[in-house]
């Protein structure tokens, strides 16, 4: 701020000192440790992270960023999905024409649809890869068992979101893929036909199935995903950040338990 001219400086200061500004930004410019900490703690989104993180948890080859990539893809899907919702009609007569309309006459419609479809495939793939990396790095071990279970739930929800979305174009591809897919569910002994009936709302894929899949796809599953992802990320933080932090301390650094030892000694003395 010091390089600014006197007049600019005062105008800038007038803004940044105002009560309105300061009610929005409860910290100064983050060029010092205190303000860098405040940036993180005073903002709900950034507060997902602790003020400081271990350098080793940021190594690219540890996580490959897969969890974050899954979150990003979910964001892209919500954004493009809402755009598609403005034009899509979940009716056997109108769904397919709506898709044609999106592709032919809606500005950037085909492109939005492409983004939605490719991100959806990619998110399933990325969630599976993320599970694989969490497994092989032993990051499911105590105290992260619960978050692993939340993760399994998220994977099933991701599959559910993708599967229910698959039917919506109401073309031959989607119709027969869902027929094959729901037939698999129907093979369960005793409850199979009931499960299939609940999914489809009838004996075969038709209007009842379409409205059920639509509701699951745009309302129930995304809501559960938002909830699940929130719990998942909150747990990552509560469990002490990424599991790599728990592993052996590199030479020359102070092992965590010696700090505890030091504290115990002082409390004994006093």
């Amino acid at each position: 701020m010091s390089v600014q001219t006197h007049q600019n400086g005062s105008r800038w200061e007038f803004i940044t000192q105002s009560r309105v500004w300061r009610s929005f930004f409860r910290h100064g410019w983050p060029d010092n440790p205190l303000d860098r900490s405040l940036v993180m703690t005073s903002n709900i989104f950034l507060h997902l992270h602790p003020v400081k993180v271990n350098r080793r948890s940021l190594h690219w080859s540890y996580t490959f960023g897969l969890g974050v990539i899954a979150v990003v893809l979910f964001g892209v899907l919500v954004f493009t999905g809402v755009l598609l919702m403005f034009y899509y009609v979940p009716s056997v007569e109108r769904a397919y024409p709506a898709l044609r309309n999106i592709e032919v006459s809606v500005p950037l419609g085909q492109f939005t649809r492409n983004m939605h479809r490719w991100s959806a495939h990619l998110m399933v793939l990325v969630a599976i890869l993320h599970l694989i990396r969490v497994f092989y790095t032993g990051a499911y071990k105590s105290p992260r068992e619960f978050n692993w279970l939340v993760g399994v739930g998220l994977l099933l929800l991701t599959l559910g979101a993708s599967f229910t979305g698959y039917l919506l174009p109401w073309d031959q591809l989607s119709y027969w893929a869902i027929t094959v897919g729901t037939n698999i569910a129907g093979y369960a002994p005793l409850i199979g036909n009931a499960v299939r009936g609940i999914l489809l709302g009838g004996p075969e894929v038709g209007q009842d199935a379409l409205i059920r899949f639509y509701t699951l796809h745009v309302a129930l599953i995304p809501t559960l995903l938002v909830l699940g992802i929130s719990i998942h990320l909150w747990r990552v933080r509560k469990d002490g950040g990424l599991a790599v932090n728990d592993s052996v301390t590199p030479a020359g650094e102070v092992p965590a338990d010696e700090h505890v030892g030091g504290m115990q000694k002082t409390s004994e003395k006093s």
Binding site: R36, M40, H49, N54, P250
Partner: peptide, 14 residues
Amino acid sequence: PDGSVFSFPVVLLI
């Protein structure tokens, strides 16, 4: 003490 870095801006940039 354990080789940590500030989340702002490092994690945010990543």
